[in-house]
Design a protein around this nucleic acid. Sequence first.
DNA 1: CACTCACACTAGCGCTTGCTTGGTTAGTGG
DNA 2: CCACTAACCAAGCAAGCGCTAGTGTGAGTG
Lengths: 187, 187
Amino acid sequence: MNASPRRKELTRLAAQLFVQEGFDRTTVRMLAQEMGIKSGSLFHHFKDKQEILAAVIEEGTQNALSIAKAALKQCEDDPEARLHAMARAHLETLFADRNAHVVALFEWRRLDAASRAHLSHLRDAYEELWVEVIDEALAVGLIHGDRFFVSRFILGALNWTVRWHDPAGPRTPDDLADELVAMITAR
Amino acid sequence: MNASPRRKELTRLAAQLFVQEGFDRTTVRMLAQEMGIKSGSLFHHFKDKQEILAAVIEEGTQNALSIAKAALKQCEDDPEARLHAMARAHLETLFADRNAHVVALFEWRRLDAASRAHLSHLRDAYEELWVEVIDEALAVGLIHGDRFFVSRFILGALNWTVRWHDPAGPRTPDDLADELVAMITAR
DNA sequence: CACTCACACTAGCGCTTGCTTGGTTAGTGG
DNA sequence: CCACTAACCAAGCAAGCGCTAGTGTGAGTG
């Protein structure tokens, strides 16, 4: 839709508040205050509260998709390297764009049907990348099991990191990716 | 606190609504209607809306704790068997008591400070069981890696199943536990 | 200079929210 | 038969909600 720099900045602030308070508890008055304007002025930038949520999630998912694509492109054909690159890319976006992704993961249900339909495609495109990489790893015996279960388990383990990992701590996304890949690959 | 059978039934219904709508979107009027009473009558059973949430989470966590303890008790000393038993017990509670656990996982932030402090102890006691089992598995080389990361990854993968697994489908919690343990154990 | 337009403001409407109050009802033990 | 109690209801309050209407205002454009 619209992509003015002002709107981008407002979206960023909204993401932060949505994480802090949750979407339902975040009032348009809180959003406006955080943005330094009055609540009425908010609706000059966004049609309604729903549209703010959709903007936050779209922004985050777009970033994740392009980062993952880039990571895979500059990566040799070795399935282990590609698996590792995907895991690292996933964790890096997750923490670089932490607010947007936490919202995407935990406030998805709050989207109305129209936004959800639109954003589902983005999400599917991203998961498609994962399935490919996992299929390659399965084909060469790097990991074992059902492709469906394995991909869900891996994404679950990765997504859950936002619940316990401290981005200010000593461990980098790269460290986490190492640990995860080491845990699931046969030795 | 109180544990009348009526209250237990109301708690069960509340859990269902909290899952369907989310805690914030569930109004006391919706809760009352689902229970077949008027909204005012609700406050005869619970002090306020917060207390309903706390009751739901407490119920679910208590069950998880006792089921996991039982599963470990009737289990030989083999670390792989114990790991598998924990995973299966986790998944079984997760889907037997699905509503309560989904609420515990995704509405934890809505608890007030007092309830959160009280319930944290229960939660910690449960995670303590996991850490023990994982330490045993690490000690005999069944799995590898940092105990902290490994346990977080495993719990993340397991908890995330509520987002994609269909309990009515053909795959049982036992199947999922098999897959998960197979994925992470060295061969 | 007149004009537009993005942006912001004030004021408040209509509705829903969690919760309170004061009273009623059905069942139980003495 | 009465006293007691758990369970419920009708009515509504005060606060807060998303959102709208109408009105500047200052910067850029012809």
